[in-house]
């Protein structure tokens, strides 16, 4: 009996979404009184033993270069086999792009009930009930998993990364696998290196049509830089190619749940809100007091972004002691 956590990596690093999954899996293991173990496929530069501080006791690593590209079919077989071999009763993934590719396959392979997009630890007082995001952030569902083996994917930014007391080292155990040749051939891969992925960003500054043109994005970037935030944009902005598509948040773009979302010159159409309504604090700057976004906001300024935003940047710099 154990909780098995899938540890995802990109650019040779274990990223925040996986650390959240580790913390969540470890807490769940504590709740069930079983050990938390991890599984990592491929090679990383991160020292895996340090993941012990998040409560993971043992990490099964298949350190093969050929596994560095995530192939859903190959990964699912290895993870399912490993879960069976280690007697895992719950398998935890991040509900990031990697988790979405692999977790459903693992669940189907093991005929294990799947809840994707969990936002809290399961209620295990009577059965096994997981709270998840539904209706694009407009509601939650409590979903019972009725199978002996369970698969959960955790929404990014829903559970904090928690370090335990002291420095506990995780045991890294080599996992020998004979992975079949992948049916999918990777021709090329591009990584936007150095940037925090939007889904992992804790602070996000986002601009809309109110900015009037791509040449005015400096005020957004300056505020983001002062805060240490990622930048995002609304759909019309991405459609007009003012900003790259990967910055587009909203229903057709990506859904995010940062601690702080600052929307500048965005009216707040329902499709946009569907992508950001799980943000913990929403700030809206808009010159139109009737902008629907104010109804979903925690703080707001009715005013001209070109005057307000540079002053916000100055205030942040002053607060942080940046000249």
């Amino acid at each position: 009996m154990s909780v098995l956590i899938f540890i995802d990596h990109s650019e040779g690093q274990v990223k925040k979404a996986s650390l959240e999954a580790c913390s969540y899996g470890a807490a769940l293991a504590g709740q069930l009184n079983v050990p938390a173990e991890g599984i990592l496929l491929g090679t990383v530069t991160t020292d895996l033993s340090t993941l012990g501080k998040y409560g993971v006791k043992k990490i099964h690593q298949a350190a093969q270069e050929g596994l560095n590209h995530l192939d859903a079919q190959v990964y699912a077989k290895i993870i399912a086999d490993s879960a069976t071999a280690t007697g895992a009763t719950v398998i935890v993934f991040s509900n990031n792009l990697s988790g979405k590719a692999v977790a459903p396959r693992v669940a189907a392979r093991l005929k294990a009930g799947l809840v994707s997009g969990a936002v809290a630890l399961p209620d295990t007082t009577s059965g096994f009930v997981v709270k998840k995001n539904v209706f694009s952030g407009k509601a939650f569902a409590h979903v019972a998993i009725n199978t002996p083996v369970k698969v959960i994917t955790l929404n990014p930014n829903s559970y904090p990364v928690r370090e335990g007391e002291g420095s506990v080292s995780a045991e890294v155990a080599p996992l020998s696998v004979t992975a079949g040749a992948p049916k999918v051939k990777v021709v090329s891969a591009t990584q936007a290196t150095g940037e925090v992925p939007l889904t992992e960003a804790e602070l996000v500054v986002s601009g809309g049509r109110g900015l009037k043109g791509p040449e005015n994005w400096g005020i957004i970037e300056d505020l983001a830089k002062a805060l240490g935030a990622a930048t995002a944009c609304s759909r019309p902005v991405a459609d007009a190619h003012w900003r790259p598509h990967h910055e587009h948040v909203g229903q057709t773009g990506i859904a995010i749940a940062p601690n702080l979302y600052i929307a500048i010159g965005i009216s707040g159409a329902i499709q946009h809100l569907a992508g950001v309504n799980r943000s913990k604090v929403i700030v809206v700057v808009n010159k139109d007091p009737e902008a629907p976004f104010f109804k979903a906001a925690d703080y707001g300024i009715v005013g001209d972004a070109f005057e307000v935003v540079p002053k916000m940047t100055e205030a942040v710099k002053k607060l942080k002691g940046i000249a």
């Binding site: 995802d8 990109s10 650019e11 990223k15 979404a17 590209h69 995530l70 990031n96 792009l97 990697s98 049916k183 999918v184 051939k185 990777v186 021709v187 090329s188 891969a189 591009t190 990584q191 936007a192 290196t193 940037e195 992925p197």
Partner: peptide, 10 residues
């Protein structure tokens, strides 16, 4: 994919 895009043939 996480942090980027991948081109596949299958």
């Amino acid at each position: 994919i996480e942090g980027g895009e991948e081109t596949d043939e299958v």
